[in-house]
Write a protein that binds this DNA or RNA. Structure first.
Lengths: 103, 103
DNA sequence: ATCTATTATTGCATAATTGCGATAATAAAG
DNA sequence: CTTTATTATCGCAATTATGCAATAATAGAT
């Protein structure tokens, strides 16, 4: 095979695991922490902070944007990134509910 | 490349992302929920619940055991699985701290 | 119009993940 | 000892993830 059998699970299980997957890489954890500490930072700020190529950081940023945990807005030739607080709150609640049920 | 550049990140970032990775599959989410609802269940119980082959379920169980979220103890020819409550509490705290800092 | 800064995308190689059939391993039952 | 039940492991194929160099795309500056 090679692909995840999505149909073997519920929508909730697939959605929750998709969130976990977005956080399942140290670079993405580090990027979230960086953006949190330097709101409206740009890609190069993160590149200077983490020992990964610009292309790689950009790809991780794209993944975090895809799940909605961060958002970017253009400012001149810079793309400024910030935490999507609403989404983060939602995710926090989802995960917290999961852990409380599994207890 | 193909492998994660662990040395580009802190131990904490690597450990946290490893936990997320263990949860980054719908089958593993489903398995945790199943074990939670049926404590001391066996592998075949889960196989009857989730549309995946026995070998696949066994592999996911092994991964969950590896990060310590579940534990198994032999009972005759059956291996009974249960949630590792202490580890779950620790993980819950780690994740909660992460989200509160990133806020 | 050209240059510069910044970021995204493409193409590629390598590695990890996912899933399953087949088989091995283990323990109890007959 | 043989059979049965249960689970783990191996070997394989397919898919996805990771990382980077090179390049394209974009917007402002000169």
């Amino acid at each position: 095979m090679g692909y995840t059998k999505i149909l073997a699970h519920t929508i909730e299980q697939n959605e929750l695991s998709a969130i976990f997957k977005a956080l399942a890489h140290p670079a993405r954890v580090a990027i979230l922490q960086h953006i949190s500490e330097q709101p409206n930072c740009i890609c190069n700020d993160i590149v200077n902070d983490i020992d990964l190529a610009q292309a790689t950081i950009s790809q991780h940023l794209t993944e975090l944007k895809k799940v909605g945990l961060i958002s970017g807005h253009q400012e001149g030739k810079k793309m400024c990134y910030r935490i999507n607080v609403d989404k983060l709150y939602e995710v926090k609640h989802l995960i917290s509910t999961f852990f409380n049920k599994v207890q």
